[in-house]
């Protein structure tokens, strides 16, 4: 404990440590020496590591119930194996396909209406010359990100429900008795609107960072060459935002089959299962509520595999197209 561990010699391998005139020559440490040196650091990681193993990796093993006729009182070990029967049950269930369709519908709407929103807002914020005003607007629009779904859905029912301000406004323009909160056809739009309200502001952070990273000389050069502000936007700004946009698109692809579970669970009963059921709520209601453990776990497994495959595939595609993607090759 008392000896000074020659960290710096190790760090700047090849050059002598400047502070010590008689630095020991760089030497390879044995595994044992490194273990001795790093033992405190290693011990510090233990609780976190245990957490990840128990609550992220052990549950993966729990997916064996997808291949079992799982009975809670029998447990994993005693429940009979049924092969792929659970998958067959699921794929033969019309409610499963309806939930898949609803999920894709909402994903598509979010991709079209929500995904570009933070880019647009970031461009607007970035074009504000007064940094004081910009900072104020930023702190206001970030706020909804921190409001939980229960609260947002409550507020949304107050404003859009039968007695809400939006209903009154619609009434004034001739649309009577429009309760947007329990209209099945409007449901995907309602969900998308709520996501836009909650996350657009927060989503600007990453784009604003990318905008700051664009070399100002590019703008100057473009302006000197006679490019007006729209052409600069098209030829300088948007290419500058490309890498981060593609990164976020890839990450979104991974969650294409999960659309705001809590958000939809809270509102599903307002519009009924036909319009309001998505894959995650399907798993919840069939598995936890109805006790159909096997088939629901099968859905969860398929969903997880598709999500991971989409991320890896999209990332590959990004590499092929010359973009950086989530990680480098």
């Amino acid at each position: 404990m008392t000896d000074v561990r020659p960290i710096e010699a190790d760090r700047t391998a090849g050059q002598p440590a400047p502070a010590e005139p008689q630095a020991p020559p760089v030497r390879r440490r044995t595994v044992w020496q490194r273990l001795r040196r790093d033992r405190t650091m290693l011990l510090l990681t233990v609780p976190g590591l245990l957490f990840f193993l128990v609550f992220h990796y052990v549950p993966l093993l729990g997916y064996v119930v997808a291949f079992q006729s799982y009975q809670p009182f029998l447990g994993f070990t005693q429940s009979p194996w049924v092969g792929l029967a659970n998958f067959a049950t699921t794929f033969g269930d019309p409610a499963f396909w309806s939930a898949t369709l609803n999920t894709l519908k909402i994903t598509l709407l979010q991709l079209v209406f929500f995904f570009p929103a933070p880019i647009a807002l970031a461009l607007l914020l970035n074009s504000m010359l007064s940094s004081k005003l910009r900072r104020f607007v930023q702190s206001v629009v970030y706020l909804p990100h921190f409001i939980g779904w229960v609260i947002i859905v409550s507020i949304s029912q107050e404003l859009l429900g039968g007695t809400g301000v939006v209903t009154h406004l619609l009434d004034a323009v001739g649309v009577h008795n429009a309760d947007l909160t329990n209209n099945p056809a409007f449901f995907p739009f309602l969900v998308t609107l709520q996501v836009i309200w909650k996350n657009t502001g927060w989503g600007t952070i990453i784009y604003l960072a990318a905008l700051v990273g664009i070399d100002q000389q590019l703008y100057e050069a473009a302006a000197v060459d006679g490019a007006n502000r729209w052409r600069r936007l098209w030829h300088v700004t948007l290419p500058g935002l490309m890498p981060v946009t593609i990164l976020l698109l890839i990450l979104n692809l991974g969650s294409i089959l999960s659309v705001g579970f809590e958000q939809i669970l809270l509102q599903r009963d307002n519009v009924g299962a036909d319009a309001g059921e998505v894959l995650d709520t399907y798993v919840y209601f069939h598995g936890i509520v109805d006790g159909q453990w096997g088939p629901s776990a099968a859905v969860g497994l398929v969903k997880g595999l598709i999500g991971t495959a989409l991320i890896l595939g999209a990332n590959k595609l990004a590499h092929v197209l010359g973009q950086e993607g989530v990680y480098r090759r």
Partner: peptide
């Protein structure tokens, strides 16, 4: 650090997948 890389990867991988509700 010895073992640092694998331990970090154990944590990082959990961002890529999640074991659903039931497990």
């Amino acid at each position: 650090m010895i073992g640092g890389r694998p331990i970090l990867l154990v944590a990082l991988f959990t961002m890529l997948f999640s074991a659903g509700i039931i497990p």
